[in-house]
Computed example of a mutant assay.
Amino acid sequence: MPQAMPRILAIAATPALRFAWHERGMTVALRQQLSLRKTRPETSFGPFRPLPALPWLVMATAIRIVGFGKPGLIVPALVLADVCVLLAFFATARDSIQAAGGQSSLGELTLGEQIKLSLSILWRIVLVIIIATLATAAIGFSSFAPHLLWGLDGMAFDQGADLGRFWSAAIAALVLLIIVNAESNGGRVALFAAVKDLGRHALWLGAAVLLLGVINVALGYGQGLVRTAIWHFWQISMVGQPLKNLIYVVFIFSFAMLRLWITLSILTFGLKQSYARGG
């Protein structure tokens, strides 16, 4: 018999094998852990509600552009952009679970609760990334090691190394398991428990990460072709610079949203199959 799935991402005992959240347990447990109370309705971003990740990806894109090439702004810009990426990850994870036939309570968290949860996850993932970067440099791959620093950012945005794209897929799997594990830990974010879960679901999630890495590589090359086409458009077009800048921003966050949707769809499917079939 396959092991029981945590309540936060349970598989119902039906032929359809669907995901389900248990009695809003995630919402209650997280609020107890975060010590926050819901004092206003959930932030909906008005007309963006059908695409809940879009506002966060737009913000992340703008922050990355502002911080680009400015040494004093690179680190704070990267932190803020990664928080936005995590918030977009939450929104996409919720919709991905619902698309798989389940229900998610992530959307019931207030904006403050989501930001606090993001920060709690962020420093743990950053710790993993820094350790992996230093270890990779120490064993002689010093030229590749810096690409690992973009592991979290790479869940939504493209990066320059193919192996780095596989690394971002693995980081996305770890973030998903941290979220899933939070309910079974009373809402507490537990990195080591998530790492243990990653090993327990290594077969299906490993396959999902490998598939996602291949897709990210292909998506990266496709994005590069579009980027080149936009650059040529800039050289020959007579439209104003504001419109050119708008086109470039739309290009960046459109690929970011596509990459995030593909990431969560594949990882959610892999995790569902792991619980259903074992491993």
Rank of each mutant, 00 (worst) to 15 (best):
L191T: 07
H201V: 01
A207P: 04
V214P: 10
G222W: 05
A207Y: 05
L210N: 04
D197L: 13
N216F: 14
V214K: 08
T228R: 14
A182T: 04
D197R: 11
V189S: 00
L203C: 08
A208V: 04
I178W: 00
N185H: 12
H201T: 09
H232Q: 13
L203A: 15
A190W: 08
L211Q: 07
G199T: 10
L198I: 08
G199Q: 12
L198N: 06
G224E: 08
L225W: 13
F192N: 14
A190V: 09
L212K: 05
L211P: 01
A218K: 11
H232S: 08
G213C: 09
Y221K: 12
V217K: 04
D197G: 07
L177A: 05
I215Y: 05
A193V: 02
R188K: 14
N181Q: 14
Q223W: 03
G224C: 02
A208W: 00
W204Y: 15
V189P: 00
D197C: 04
G206F: 07
A207I: 12
N181D: 15
V175G: 00
L210V: 15
H232N: 09
V209M: 01
L225E: 12
G186T: 08
G206N: 00
V175A: 06
R200H: 10
A202F: 11
S184K: 11
N181E: 15
G187E: 05
Q223M: 15
G220P: 03
R188F: 13
A182I: 12
N216Q: 11
R227Y: 07
V217T: 12
V209T: 03
L219E: 14
G186M: 12
G213L: 06
G206D: 06
L219G: 14
L205F: 09
A190D: 15
L191W: 11
R188A: 15
S184F: 03
L203T: 12
W231Y: 12
G220Y: 01
G187T: 04
G187H: 01
A190E: 11
I215H: 02
A202L: 10
I178F: 03
A208T: 01
N216L: 06
N181G: 09
G199D: 07
L211R: 05
A182G: 08
A202I: 10
I179G: 03
L198Y: 10
V209R: 00
A193F: 00
G222T: 04
V175F: 08
L212M: 13
L225A: 15
L219R: 14
I230C: 02
A208E: 02
G187F: 03
S184Q: 14
F192H: 15
V180F: 12
A194L: 02
L198H: 07
G224A: 04
V175P: 07
G206V: 02
G224D: 08
N216M: 03
R200Y: 06
G213R: 08
G222K: 06
L211I: 13
L219P: 07
A229C: 02
V217M: 07
V214C: 13
E183P: 07
N185C: 07
A194T: 00
S184W: 09
L210M: 12
G186R: 05
G213P: 00
E183N: 14
L176Y: 09
A182C: 10
G199A: 11
Y221C: 00
V214L: 15
L211W: 07
A194C: 01
L219Q: 13
V189L: 06
W231G: 06
